[in-house]
Computed example of a mutant assay.
Amino acid sequence: MMLKKRKLGRKIEEIKEGEKLTLTEKMEDKDLLLYLGLTNDANPLYIQHDYASQTTYKKPLVPSIMLIGMVTSAVSKYLPGPGSHILSHHIELPNPVYHYETIKFLFIVKEVRQQENEVVIEIVGENEEGSCVLEGLITVCPPSLLNGMDDDTF
């Protein structure tokens, strides 16, 4: 049930190659616990300090899918915004992310395909030391409305 009207994100015509978005996210315990509870993921590498200390990582890691979730959330909220849909993604995670780290995400519009109603966005995530922890490309379908529909319909 929708209780209030939501503004849609930007249409393909409003997006330009070279646009950038920067977001910063801190890896907090509450977020990790919510993810682990929702997914029922009990991987000791994510939550057990004693186990993680015996691995090559030395400390518990943030689940990779949480980082990817932050990327998809940024698409839904900001670029292009509400009403968008990710069509494909290729993401690499070259370095681990640890609890309490702050990650800076940079999103750059690389290509606007108006005919296909698709936008290709490059993503780079770096930790406080400047190490790359996430990089990749996503193809997104920005919001598009059928004739006769507009923001007021929602």
Rank of each mutant, 00 (worst) to 15 (best):
M1Q: 13
L3W: 14
K4G: 12
K4Y: 15
K4W: 14
K5L: 14
K5F: 13
R6M: 11
L8N: 01
K11H: 04
I15F: 10
E19R: 03
T22A: 00
L23G: 01
T24I: 03
K26F: 00
K26R: 03
D29C: 00
D29P: 05
K30Q: 00
K30W: 00
K30F: 00
L33M: 05
L33Q: 07
L36G: 01
L38E: 09
N40R: 09
D41L: 06
A42T: 08
A42P: 01
A42F: 03
N43P: 02
P44Q: 08
L45P: 07
L45T: 11
L45S: 11
Y46V: 07
I47R: 02
A52Q: 03
A52H: 05
S53T: 02
Q54A: 05
Q54H: 03
K58V: 11
P60C: 04
L61M: 14
P63Y: 13
G69D: 06
M70I: 02
V71R: 04
T72G: 10
S73C: 11
S73L: 10
A74V: 06
A74R: 05
S76K: 15
S76V: 10
Y78M: 12
Y78T: 04
L79T: 11
L79E: 02
G83N: 07
H85T: 13
H85V: 12
S88F: 07
H90I: 14
H90G: 15
E92R: 09
E92S: 15
L93M: 15
L93S: 15
V97S: 08
V97Q: 06
Y98D: 06
H99E: 00
Y100M: 02
E101V: 03
E101T: 02
I103Y: 07
I103L: 07
K104P: 05
L106F: 06
F107G: 03
V112L: 14
V112K: 14
Q115A: 07
N117G: 04
V120R: 11
V120T: 12
I121Y: 05
I121S: 09
I123R: 15
V124G: 09
G125C: 08
E128W: 08
E129F: 12
E129L: 11
E129S: 14
E129I: 08
S131Y: 09
V133S: 08
E135W: 04
G136L: 06
G136K: 06
G136P: 07
V140L: 10
C141W: 01
P142G: 08
L145N: 12
L145D: 13
L146A: 14
N147P: 12
N147T: 04
N147G: 05
G148D: 13
D150Y: 13
D150G: 10
D152T: 12
T153Q: 03
F154I: 12
